[in-house]
Design a protein around this nucleic acid. Sequence first.
DNA 1: GCTTGAAGCTGTAGTTGCTACAGGGTTTAT
DNA 2: ATAAACCCTGTAGCAACTACAGCTTCAAGC
Lengths: 159, 159
Amino acid sequence: MTSSIDTSRVLDRNIGIGELARRAGCQPETVRYYERIGLLQNASRTEGGQRRYDERAVRRLAFIRHARDFGFSVEAVRELLKMADHPQMPCHEVDAIAKHHLEEVELRLQRLSALRDELRRMVSQCAGGKVESCRIIEVLGDHRLCQHEAEHGGAGDLR
Amino acid sequence: MTSSIDTSRVLDRNIGIGELARRAGCQPETVRYYERIGLLQNASRTEGGQRRYDERAVRRLAFIRHARDFGFSVEAVRELLKMADHPQMPCHEVDAIAKHHLEEVELRLQRLSALRDELRRMVSQCAGGKVESCRIIEVLGDHRLCQHEAEHGGAGDLR
DNA sequence: GCTTGAAGCTGTAGTTGCTACAGGGTTTAT
DNA sequence: ATAAACCCTGTAGCAACTACAGCTTCAAGC
């Protein structure tokens, strides 16, 4: 929170990339990266060429970081920003992006919990003897030992 | 010479990279990649320089793919293979790798389900009006609107 | 005004685990 | 002999940063 007495005018254009990054919870490199890929517009510069930011930039970067933390892809964030920049637009697109993302998250959750079950089973069945008779190695070596069969060709991106 | 009686000997060394890949559920490029990074040993070659595999290679590749599908990193797979190659070793290391992986999966599950809840909340609260009053944009713009507070600096890798 | 240490600059390369070419050569069946 | 299918190497690309190297600038203290 900007507990400001005045400072606003002085500080406003006086935020360096380090402080900006710290306040939004990322690295300066990430900020420069976002600028390079166009999520942040080119910052104003000092005479010496260093970037200087204001509070608006802090909010924008925080928005980006927050959306990224929510797992939105950079491209989705780009869309969301575009919409956030145009408050008069109807928001069904925002909604669509979020819903689509929600679906993907739910899918990943399903896969991941199936994976967890299988791992638990593997781990619990390992008697702790020799590799020869290790249940984990066995299961990994023989797909038929898996409990759930679906998508046998590969679990896809189950990160 | 190639009398059809013992196909096993003839066929055994006669698996091309395409068939190998198909049987293990991946692409030829992936096989070459695994060879390059040392997960698969250098294949024997025909006079013309094409790779030829046997059944053992099929099993090894299937093991790798299966472990990867389980979300084990390539480095973890490398360890697991080393151990699978030495059946007389005690298997507690295998167990440790699997347990460690299980923990990570469970952590990801927790984060992901928190994320799902938040997304559901966001989506359900969006009234479908203008972006101006869009709950989703609001939540993304203001971290304090999140329900769960933990790890406020960023959710880390919550894919 | 000068010095010093922290912070910032650009550009490039690395990360993970593949995938996708381009531009050739080989195998196999007919 | 020829055509189709397969395979080769090497390089570049993907996402989303991160990590340098080798330099310059800024801000604060004296």
